[in-house]
Simulated scan of single mutants.
Amino acid sequence: MPYPDRLLADDEEVVRHLHPHWLTIFWPVVFFLLLVGGASFGAALVPAGRQQGMVRLAIVALALLLLLVFVAVPLLRWRTTHYVVTTHRLLFREGVLARRGRDLGLSRITDVSYTQTLWARIVSSGTLTIETAGDSGPTVLRRIPDSDGVQQLLNHMIEEDADRRAQESAGYLRDDDWPSDGGWRSTAVL
């Protein structure tokens, strides 16, 4: 599902949209399979009698409660966590009921580094640490898929953003705005 265009500026485009690594939802899926299998087996073992329906209903109710807490919540948390790299900024959005977000302008980012354990290298995951100008300290993003690729992409986007800002501050038009005769034209107002 693409990131909503309404949250972007007019000249801003999404370059990469990520969720946390798929291993984040591995254990909730395993727990789902075990819980469904265990609840089905437990309901089948209930002996026939007057209380059979109530006991089976209690097993199903307990299974649903456990599914909600240990499966649905982690899956929703994974699905509602967004890491978006655009042409102008890096956006983080997370939360199911209460939302939290942060936008980092590419011009404010001073350093992007990643770390990977051996296991993270095997599954192509890692942790990104993003340093910005200011007193807020580093932003740490854990379980990022293709963390080394995202780090390289961010460094590339930071360089492109700096070049774009330099051209804009020099007062020159973008390439598609050049006059057809090839002459230089400034957008600076005198």
Rank of each mutant, 00 (worst) to 15 (best):
L128Q: 05
R121Q: 14
P2L: 10
L64W: 09
L7H: 10
L153Y: 04
S113K: 11
Y114Q: 13
I59D: 01
L75A: 09
H17G: 08
T80G: 01
G126C: 10
T139N: 11
P2R: 06
Q152D: 10
P138W: 05
L128I: 09
A166L: 10
G53L: 10
T81Y: 09
R174Q: 11
H88L: 05
A166S: 06
F32N: 06
W184E: 07
I25M: 07
L104D: 03
L118K: 08
S147D: 01
L190K: 10
D103N: 13
A9P: 00
S125D: 13
G42V: 05
G149E: 11
A63P: 05
L76F: 12
L66P: 08
I25Y: 01
L64A: 15
L153W: 04
W78F: 07
Y114G: 05
G101A: 08
T117F: 03
R142E: 03
V150Q: 09
V189P: 00
D111E: 15
E94P: 01
F70I: 05
R99P: 02
T187F: 00
A9Y: 09
A72T: 13
V55H: 04
A72G: 00
E94K: 15
L67A: 13
R143F: 10
T139Y: 03
A188F: 03
L76Y: 01
E94C: 12
V85A: 14
A162H: 11
D5R: 11
A120N: 11
P4W: 06
P20D: 02
A72D: 00
L18P: 02
D148F: 09
G137C: 06
E160T: 06
R165K: 14
E159M: 12
S113A: 14
P138C: 07
V96T: 12
A58W: 07
A162K: 12
T129H: 02
P179I: 15
S186V: 04
R185Y: 09
S147L: 10
E94R: 14
D11R: 12
A98Q: 07
S124Q: 15
D175C: 04
R16D: 07
L90M: 11
L154D: 00
R89K: 13
E131Q: 15
L8V: 11
R50C: 00
A43L: 03
V69P: 04
Q167E: 06
V30M: 13
Y83D: 00
V15Y: 00
V112F: 03
F41V: 14
I25C: 02
G95C: 03
R89C: 08
S180V: 10
V73E: 01
G126L: 09
L23N: 11
S113E: 04
W22L: 14
E131N: 14
P2W: 04
G95S: 03
S124L: 06
P20T: 07
E168H: 11
R165G: 04
L66E: 05
G182H: 04
H19D: 02
V60Y: 08
E13L: 08
